[in-house]
Amino acid sequence: MSNARALTALTKTLKPLDGYALALGDDALISSHRLSEWLTYAPDLEEEVALANIALDQLGQARHLLGFAGRSSGLSEDELAYQRVDREYRNSLLAELPNGDFAHTILRLFFFSTYQRLLYAGLTASADGELAAFAAKAAVEVGYHHEYAVSWTLRLGDGTEESHDRAAAALAELWPYTAELFAVDEDVAALAAEGLVPDPESLAGPWSEQVGTVLAQATLGTAPSGTWRPSGGRAGLHTEALGYLLAEMQSVHRAHPGATW
């Protein structure tokens, strides 16, 4: 697969801003795929449509970001989505973890949408006009995802004993993975210094505060303590779950390369 290897080389040499957009796009793409896995499995028809709507919003964001990321290297959004292997994906580990139960999916969406809302709000001030315009549109979508996730987090946490226990278990499992969202590497630090992207560390404070308020209101207590904060997703070091996800997501494209309808 010389084609695939050539692609690998290209994704490693993306310009920093393109690489940044790729990471954000991968977050949206992988999260979208996880949400779409609820189709035909959601608790009821109404919830299924709600989750699918959010998945499609995220897919739209992913398409825009992947298109942006690949443009100057001549890579299409389809090549980036369907021809990379897991080591070439830059999404955070939080996005790829298997769905678990409904509480698990909701807590993940709550953490993720709170992060994305702050991130896109910051990105609207980007010195790159196209990214700023994209962020302004995406921020409105993510605002709804956040409202949806908060509303369910409150209902599950402050609901029945069973829903509370499930939400608490999801919180304990997912919490360690949230630190990675605010990690800064050399490239991102340089982009932030140029005013092209928000400094991830500057998002961590407001994120903790907003998340903490909802968790307290949902009677889920304070954030878990613990020093195990896994990361590596941005550098292509993923959990085993991503490989299975990609195998399914990419299967049609790999069976029928370049097919259109």
Binding site: D44, E46, V49, A50, E147, Y148, S151, R155
Partner: peptide
């Protein structure tokens, strides 16, 4: 029509189901 546990969820579900 739709099923929902309360008015707030009903509104949200209406948004998702009927104003896509």
């Amino acid at each position: 029509s739709l099923h929902a546990p309360d008015a707030e969820v009903a509104l949200r579900r209406a948004r998702d189901l009927y104003t896509r």
